[in-house]
Amino acid sequence: MKLILASASPWRRELLSRLEIPFACVNADVDESPQPGESPRALARRLAALKADTVLARHPDALVIGSDQVGTLDGHTPVGKPGTLERAVAQLQAASGRSMHFHTALALRAAGQPAIDDCVDVQVRFRTLTAAEIRAYLARDPDALHCAGSARCEGLGISLLEAIHSDDPSALIGLPLIRLAGHLRTLGFDLLG
């Protein structure tokens, strides 16, 4: 069965390639606006499922993986991709000495198979940051402007943190590989064969 990652994210593509199985990437291109009263975790789960369902409708012969991540500061204030240097500085100033929570949802869809939906939570605790450290970090890692929370843990952003708590650390980057590998095994993918 053809495997499709319903994402245009280079980080998710890189993560899935670690499993060393062939796959294609297809951008689901869905509306990611939250619904009124929707919790961050529920939003992540709904968007992962929507992405997988949307791509499956276009590729009914495939197993489609959808994923989405929603971050919050201290569990309440939404944290998105900053997009600009000014917003990245503001995000990191707000995160200094505090925790961000990331909900990384996973949805697997294939015709004739039961839907699989999962979500992995990650808590990231920032150390107290100075304005000079924030500016120096952002000058050295321009990709941080495209990451929720502005701190790329797979790069220099790790130096901004005190701790990461999760059962599946790859979830912080955007795709929970431990959970995904388990679900793929249950669907008959022999990852080590």
Rank of each mutant, 00 (worst) to 15 (best):
V122E: 03
H103Y: 15
A163M: 03
L5V: 03
P176M: 10
R58C: 10
G66M: 09
R41W: 02
E14P: 00
L19H: 04
F189E: 05
C119L: 14
L129S: 10
P176K: 09
A6M: 07
H103T: 02
Q93L: 13
E14M: 06
T130W: 08
I158L: 15
A136M: 04
T72G: 03
R135Q: 15
P36R: 08
E154S: 06
R18N: 03
A48W: 05
R135M: 10
E86I: 01
L175C: 11
I4A: 00
I134K: 04
H101L: 14
L180R: 03
H165E: 15
T130I: 07
P114G: 09
L177S: 08
E86H: 03
D29I: 02
P78V: 06
D143V: 07
L129F: 06
K2L: 07
P82N: 08
T186A: 14
L73Y: 05
L160S: 04
H103C: 10
L172G: 08
R140F: 00
R135K: 12
L177V: 01
L73I: 11
S166I: 04
L172M: 15
L138S: 09
V55C: 11
R179C: 13
R140S: 15
E32M: 08
G155N: 11
D121Y: 00
D61R: 11
G66T: 01
S150Q: 09
L184K: 08
S170Q: 07
L180T: 00
R18Y: 01
G112E: 12
V64P: 01
